[in-house]
Design a protein around this nucleic acid. Structure first.
Lengths: 350, 350
DNA sequence: AAGGTCAGGTTTAACGATAAACAAAAGCTT
DNA sequence: AAGCTTTTGTTTATCGTTAAACCTGACCTT
């Protein structure tokens, strides 16, 4: 591999001069510049970023830590993060914790097990000398990670870290659920069932608050018996639909598209028509929701926007201004989802 | 950030000694070792990989170039590649070409446009000093990329590069289609329609060969009128179903799950029942295929295996043996897909 | 006792690029 | 023409780590 020194030798100038030319420094005659650039081109010289990184103490590399790259939310966020950082001249290292694939539950709410996965990664990243870290969580939960854990700016996407120490960008759960229930009300539904995730889950709780607010604002009574809890997977939607149907709801708001799939399963089994006898809505706008019959009305997750906002915040902290303040104050953003209206909700009023 | 030198100073030994201890070199007394390790731990020393990389001329980093990380095939492959290389102590840099998001068609079959995207990336990677490159294509097509383009071992996944120069791992298109049609035949279908991608596409062509072989072997006539071409998207499946139904096929083999979605759309519109009046099969086993009603029988892409095999080959070339031979001979593997039987094919014979 | 071996280190130079300090010659001023 | 500035460079030191060469004293051998 050709080095600066070799180029310099071939041109009969010093390495510094070649370096100056390539970095656009002044104090070089046009003649020398031309000659050097020509040789650089001829020899196909490429600067060695490893050496540059060592000398300049800048790697222009950030790390994306993904809890699980296989989750449907992750690639969308990664994509927009990478696009943003590439545009700014940064490289991206992706680290996949494979959290969900690995243990599924044992690390969940088990701080110690979780740290035993995360800490070695943070150590590695310290060694790699990345300049910033963008953490992409899979599900929302409190992550007890402080900026002191890491000597470098960190931002979290799709997670609820300890709010006082790390900036984060998430969806506005409450507002999103509010919008969805408001939509159902506008279609004339007043007996609205809810299929949430686990009862102790932050997503579930916040969305429930939003749903209640919509009902309250519209003078529709909130009935706790119309709320059922699943585990985000299809099967749980199936298992939980019966009591809702028996209670006589006219619409079911599911907090995940997959669970809506389970609701459809139950309805089909009982000879009921989704979107006709019982209206159903989902949450996530996964690709598969378009293939439901009837196509599922759902909330679209602003994954691209989350990635962009999180990148923006991280980029802001990467500029070498006020690192003290930057590391002690945390911005937290939440972005509302948008309703994707399809065919699974019947209009009851004109 | 604490350096080797500082540790050495605190221990009253030379930096070399600390380095030797950390790298398990002999010639160190146990007493010194203990003391140094203790200080290393106390100060939380982490080696600087950038400096190590420069000194050792090894970065232990590979690059994954993804044509588009948003394609459903990509994350699965990336995931297994990263797992494999992490286990071997390598870091992974992911590069997203955003090919499909960017131009959609203009680069396709346009070598020059394509190179204008790829070349700068290869240049960057040269500068980063990655030790190997794993290229993940989105669709299969000939990629005129030779190993001379890059001074480092390269392997392609899910693509058909110029076979003589770069090793690749893909799916066995022909065998997969063969298996699917054989399955349809075993269910008693003899009038089998095919919905392919574009006629000039390699996927389409190879799968068609496999389908024909299955029919031929079973003495079922192959009827060119029963073959229609789409563009892999749902809508095209919808548009292309009518002639097949009119020609009286009893089953339709779609070369993509999404196009099968379009076939379902057409059948529903005409009051025909998929899996009952007309059997339908897909290809890809995307998540959404499980949510079809009836659930879609399809071929599962061995994404994990592709990633693993490709990693294996790349890893083999990374070992410093016979680089000459390694760079001139190319291994190409193809892995058959597996049938995922669901509910969309009716059994016509007992 | 002279020479050799070995454990347990230290010193030096190098990886490739670049910032900082320094230098030589040309041009300008008065 | 002496002194100053400007242009156009060069030399040196450095980033953090490690291979290679070198060093020192203890112990062994004959």
């Amino acid at each position: 591999m050709v080095t600066l020194k070799e180029i310099a030798k071939e041109c009969n100038v010093s390495a510094t001069t070649v370096s100056n030319i390539l970095n656009g420094k002044p104090k070089v005659s046009e003649a020398t510049r031309q000659k050097v650039l020509q040789v650089v081109k001829k020899r196909g010289y490429q600067p060695n970023y490893v050496a540059q990184g060592l000398r300049n103490q800048r790697t222009r590399t950030i790390a994306v830590i993904a809890e699980d790259i296989g989750l449907f939310t992750t690639p969308g966020i990664i994509e927009s993060v990478m696009a943003r950082f590439e545009a700014e001249g940064y490289h991206t290292i992706v680290w996949n914790l494979r959290l969900y694939a690995r243990w599924n539950e044992s690390w969940y709410n088990n701080e110690q097990a979780y740290r035993s996965i995360l800490n070695p990664v943070l150590q590695e990243l310290r060694s790699i000398k990345v300049e910033g870290v963008l953490y992409i969580a899979g599900h929302a939960r409190l992550i007890h990670c402080t900026s002191q854990d890491y000597e470098v700016p960190m931002v979290m996407a799709y997670a609820y870290p300890d709010l006082k120490t790390i900036p984060s960008v998430t969806i506005d759960e409450e507002q999103s659920a509010y919008l969805m229930v408001k939509y159902l009300l506008s279609m004339g539904h007043t007996r609205i069932g809810v299929v949430g995730g686990r009862a102790d889950n932050i997503h579930t709780q916040r969305r429930l608050v939003g749903a209640q607010r919509a009902m309250f604002e519209n003078g529709v009574p909130y009935n706790p018996e119309w709320v059922q809890y699943g585990d985000w997977y299809r099967k749980s939607g199936y298992l939980v639909t019966e009591p809702l149907v028996k209670a006589g709801v006219t619409a079911i708001f599911c907090m995940a598209d997959r669970m809506a799939g389970g609701v459809y399963d139950y309805l089909e089994e009982k000879g009921l028509r989704a979107g006709e006898d019982i209206s159903v809505t989902g949450f996530d706008n996964q690709d598969l929701s378009e293939y439901f019959r009837p196509a599922l009305t759902t909330m679209n997750l602003p994954l691209k926007e989350i990635g962009e906002k999180a990148s923006e915040i991280l980029l802001g902290r990467l500029k070498d201004g006020a690192p003290e303040e930057a590391l002690t104050s945390a911005v937290s953003l939440s972005i509302p989802c948008t309703l994707v209206e399809r065919k699974s909700v019947k209009r009851l009023i004109p």
